[in-house]
Write a protein that binds this DNA or RNA. Structure first.
Lengths: 192, 192
DNA sequence: GTCTATAGAGAGATAGAC
DNA sequence: GTCTATCTCTCTATAGAC
């Protein structure tokens, strides 16, 4: 069995992304992690907010690494992005629409209420945008266009996650994937 | 002053979309609405869940009416859609990133936890998709393509809302707007 | 119907034995 | 460091006076 600290962190990440930050109790986290309640405050003296911050950061880093792994295997960037959308849809189905974006639910809740957590979420999104912008430039998209395209792709993915979970269907992910590829194609081979 | 029932409903809608469903207490709702606590259970015997359901439905209908109003004034559909994204960005700035989508925050929280509220959110999204699909068909997009395009546009909008609120910038909305118009353009004048 | 008071459960957080 | 017991606060919900 994984060490206590790790069990708590993994369980918190799972519950936060599924039920939200306010909707998840620390008692529920420690119980499900089979850890004593006091351990949570031993490892995170800052309480729920400090735990939330670490969940956001590690979840964001994990998702970025997942993208990197897919991008490294794909023959080109459009394929990589298409594969990432496809994989996201497959994960949704495999988990019965429980696991989507690791930070989206929390980010939506805290944007106007918990400034430290909003800042942590913003840091995660910026890390994704930086990586994606780099890859877009590497694929031949001129520098000033890279960030807007990256923003549109991430927005499409996040919106698709929300729609898929709510409609309990991967149709939105397929549609967002197709739109993302259309945008990429238009950018890589501009109309005359 | 508006009647008690209406004050509670409006206040609940405001707090739910900003702080989320779990993050908003009914005490806070009635206090801010300057209504007695008991009135809430008088008008919504089903408690928080019944109130949440009505907030989702009325918020969704309001947003649809807003789209309709903008679409009716615009000379064509791409202009209407561009204007809607622009207006969304302006509202974000005007409210200091407090007011974005009326249902997104709640929809994300409840998708895996409160089935009646998930269903209500799904109903709202479907009503938007139906209206938008109709307009897309009216603009000349063939029937089987209308729904995927509508899904991609709504996903782009929702994702942009989340990114704008988290990054405290309208840059994602501008990027999503441009991508939406690219997708529309590609669909209306397909490449050879 | 309007409003107050409170029940009962559960939250986050802490103290202190071991 | 691990774990239990408990404190205080807030939550949803209800009872009942007016």
């Amino acid at each position: 069995m994984a060490p206590t600290r790790e069990r708590i962190l993994i369980t918190a990440a799972e519950l936060f992304r599924r039920q939200g930050y306010a909707g998840t109790g620390l008692k529920q986290v420690t119980t499900q992690a089979e850890a004593p309640f006091g351990s949570l405050y031993h490892f995170w003296p800052g309480g729920k907010e400090q735990l939330g911050e670490e969940v956001i950061r590690t979840g964001g880093a994990f998702f970025l690494a997942l993208y990197r792994a897919i991008a490294d295997e794909a023959p080109d960037l459009p394929t990589a992005i298409g594969d990432f959308f496809t994989g996201a849809g497959e994960t949704l189905v495999a988990t019965d629409y429980l696991d989507a974006c690791p930070i989206a639910t929390v980010a939506g809740e805290v944007a106007s209420t918990h400034e430290p957590l909003r800042a942590a979420s913003a840091g995660v999104f910026e890390s994704w945008l930086a990586a994606l912008s780099d890859d877009l430039e590497g694929a031949g998209i001129p520098e000033p266009r890279a960030r807007p395209i990256a923003l549109a792709l991430v927005a499409g993915l996040e919106g698709a996650f929300l729609l898929c979970r709510t409609l309990r269907s991967t149709e939105p992910m397929d549609a967002a994937r197709a739109a993302a590829l259309t945008v990429l194609h238009a950018e890589l081979e501009p109309a005359p």
